[in-house]
Nucleic acid binder design. Structure first.
Lengths: 161, 161
DNA sequence: TATTGTTATACTCTATAACTATA
DNA sequence: TATAGTTATAGAGTATAACAATA
């Protein structure tokens, strides 16, 4: 049943992290699709929860997205009624991006979807194992200097078949 | 020092896995660049270690890469002297892709690079924590049905700045 | 002069489809 | 007729550069 010479990558925690992360991403994209949004939209909404009224440039800096791409993302979220561009109180060049009620509701649904998916993925772990896994991840993320809740490339799409 | 309303994603193990996986990927691409190869090349070489002489189609099936993309990858590896296309003994339509000595050597160096990088990333964990992390990842990968040592999208590149 | 948002252009990557030689 | 490898074409995605308004 076993491969005579097993692939050496399978024993590397770095590889396994990437492999599992990729699997989670594709699965989450699919889980979010019925809601009509992409993980990158959820990332924006989740961030705005704590920084409502941020300028597009501030969103760019925080989320690691180019400002020309940000234009399109805000367009999409605005068209869906999740956010609104308002006048920035301190800088007339900037737009203040504000969460609307529908946006908060969508963020809540998306996070619920995420939690449901996690129950499936981590279901075979004991509570203690799952807690240890989470603690380790948080420590590693802190070691690596990763910003909490942010990463630039929650983007497209499915692996080539 | 803390964000008044912290980003809720930071507490989700699924998100943290993806975030850390992305960080590892970008760091590994950079670590491999001086060797002149990309993680996807290492994936090919590591796989061929156990399946030398596989046809391109078999490589496609195993690694989840389209066959038109595989053509270019084999071209690159062949040009670099890491693999060689030979006649397939059983099917004259197919090419048998064989590892050359330089390819084995490059695989070895790449895996050494990976191990060095892992020492940096996981350096703050105790041996027990690191072992537990690895065991959990292996269990989760098995639960998800992921093929050992394989994933389709070890691809480009850096997050937009 | 630098910065914010925006638009236009070019480039890269990926996906689809066609072609050949075998099976 | 179907499959392995290859090539060509088209589409999506990303990055670079320019622009108008404001700092």
């Amino acid at each position: 049943m076993d491969d005579p010479t097993p692939n050496p990558l399978a024993k590397h925690p770095a590889f396994l992290t990437v492999q599992l992360g990729w699997h989670i991403t594709t699965q989450f994209i699919a889980a979010l699709a019925p809601l009509g949004i992409h993980p990158r939209h959820m990332g924006m909404l989740s961030f705005l929860l704590g920084r409502d009224g941020a300028s597009q440039q501030q969103l760019c800096d925080a989320l690691g997205i180019h400002r020309n791409v940000m234009v399109g993302m805000v367009d999409e979220l605005e068209k869906a009624g999740f956010v609104e561009r308002r006048r920035h109180p301190a800088d007339r060049r900037a737009h203040a991006v504000h969460l609307l009620a529908a946006g908060r509701e969508m963020q809540r649904k998306a996070e619920e979807t995420l939690s449901r998916m996690e129950d499936g993925i981590f279901g075979s772990l004991t509570a203690a194992e799952r807690a240890a896994y989470l603690a380790t991840l948080q420590q590693l993320a802190a070691d690596a200097g990763l910003s909490p809740g942010i990463h630039p490339a929650l983007r497209d799409s499915l692996p080539g078949s």
